[in-house]
Design a protein around this nucleic acid. Structure first.
Lengths: 292, 292
DNA sequence: GATCTGTCTATTGTAGATAAAAGACAGAAG
DNA sequence: CTTCTGTCTTTTATCTACAATAGACAGATC
């Protein structure tokens, strides 16, 4: 296998959903636009649709013949890109499996275990190394530095510097800046989830990421925004891993976010700083509690 | 060619220098230690020495037979690792050659031009992407974001946050911390270069890197220390590129460093902050001046 | 004349192969 | 009994090959 066709399969599935809602599909370039793929892939999808008698395709006419059935979709496991698969496998290993700091990481072994070529694993490790959890010994193995207390402290130290600065920028954004609109939407979502916290507390993780990313973006600094990737990935896997008291923790964080949002909207730097600090401090404590 | 034997060639050259200074070489593990390579490579070197009648080798005895001649050394071009070659080629292209922001970067073309496989170019680009100068479009090309004014401003903004914090940590290091010793050495070097500035001003670039890295290390924060890589690479190539007024600029920076060092040694946080700010400001101005 | 389709070409993502380098282990030498 | 050497195995760095995907261009269609 040279290249996985996950782009095709994923776009195919999404296109099936579009197909379920109309009687004829738009032009190839438009489909490409909507699905975020090239015309080559669009045409591959349309060919398959035609083969399976889902549409009648003649040049510009793409009439829907029948509704898609559940088994027309590709299984979701097949639509994940290789790098997503590698990332998940790797994170499971280093967070769940007793991964001691100092442990050696072996490209070949990882590749065999995941069932993929070494090239992809290697590229993943290179990309991942910027998160500061692993380190390369040239001509030799990687070393796992581990998700330790020091790591968490160093991470939160930088996070706090960056977020405080971003929050300060946020309050001085012009009133017509789109971020205010976005902030309002996020606030609404907060209230909705909080109103039905027992059922919806799991949605917090994603919302948390959205909110803090919005704040970081106000810095207009690529290094600050990029750094948020590290925080996001750590918290993402951390939430998956450590579920104790999730409902209660999330409820508290949602309240803090609301106070933080209100402070941002006051346009008062001092208030924003205070609310930001308060939330960051409790986020840090939560993170540290989960590390032995 | 599967793997370049640059490790061998480089270690070989360094081993020749050792050989010039003794009458017999130490044990294989010890040589490996000194040269920073494995025993396999050490043995390859010794085999070659024996072949060329440089030593008589019998088990533990490795007696020097003759002094190395200049042509016993491998040419220096052959001792650079592939990634160094790629980095240099790439930086020359984006700094020197009229590289417009927004330009597409093509892995295959770069590889052809450098005369190497695509894998190595690809891995380089992935590693390099953390510097924020390029960005990947998945399944498609890379985009050059360019060494622009915004880039420089974003870079220096973060640099200033990090270095101020590191300097604050530095002044509170315990008196017996090895950093103080190191600082003293660096100060001496500063004075030496300054005393003979007309001849030695070119040595500033390397010293600058050493000094600021020492300061950043006081933060004990891997993200802060790692970030210094970006600054170092930018300034490194920037100095190579923009040589106007180098003597004068470097003399001024050396003076500022000395004031900064003195402030650090006073253990007075306020003084350190002031000296740090002053130097960072002029470093920023210098950088910005060179960007159109 | 703008947008679309058919066709063709170029580039990326990934696997597989191989030389270089690292590293493990047993027996030899001090 | 510690350190060294000889030998062997494993892993990394790199190249090449190829399917998936992107993208370009000319002619067709509205």
């Amino acid at each position: 296998m040279a290249k996985q066709n996950t782009v095709f399969k994923d776009a195919y599935n999404r296109c099936l959903k579009l197909l379920a809602e109309t009687s004829s599909l738009p032009s190839e370039p438009e489909l490409g636009q909507v699905l975020g793929v090239s015309r080559t892939t669009v045409r591959a999808i349309l060919s398959r649709f035609e083969e399976l008698q889902l549409i009648a395709w003649d040049k510009r006419k793409k009439n829907v013949l029948r509704q898609p059935r559940p088994d027309d979709y590709f299984p979701t496991e097949e639509t994940d890109s290789l790098s997503e698969i590698i990332e998940r496998s790797f994170m499971r290993r280093i967070l769940a499996g007793g991964a001691e700091p100092g442990m050696q990481i072996n490209e070949l072994e990882l590749a065999r275990e995941i069932g993929t070529g070494t090239t992809s694993v290697r590229e993943f490790l290179i990309r991942f190394s910027r998160f500061g959890l692993i380190e390369k010994r040239p001509n030799s193995h990687w070393i796992l530095k581990g998700f330790t207390r020091e790591f968490a402290l160093e991470l939160t130290e930088v996070r706090e510097m960056f977020e405080l600065r971003s929050a300060a920028r946020f309050v001085s954004l012009p009133h017509d800046h789109p971020a205010w609109e976005e902030l309002k939407k996020i606030e609404t979502l907060h209230r909705e989830i909080l109103a039905d916290i027992d059922n919806r507390y799991r949605e917090f993780s994603e919302l948390d990421e959205q909110f803090h990313l919005l704040v970081h973006k106000a810095s207009s600094n690529r290094f600050i925004v990029d750094f948020y990737d590290i925080i996001a990935i750590v918290f993402h896997y951390h939430y998956q891993w450590n579920k104790s008291n999730a409902r209660q923790r999330n409820a508290r964080a949602l309240e803090e976010h609301l106070a933080y949002i209100e402070a941002l909207r006051s346009h008062d730097p001092a208030k924003a700083e205070q609310a930001c600090r308060r939330h960051l401090q409790s986020a840090r404590e939560t993170l540290l509690q989960s590390i032995p």
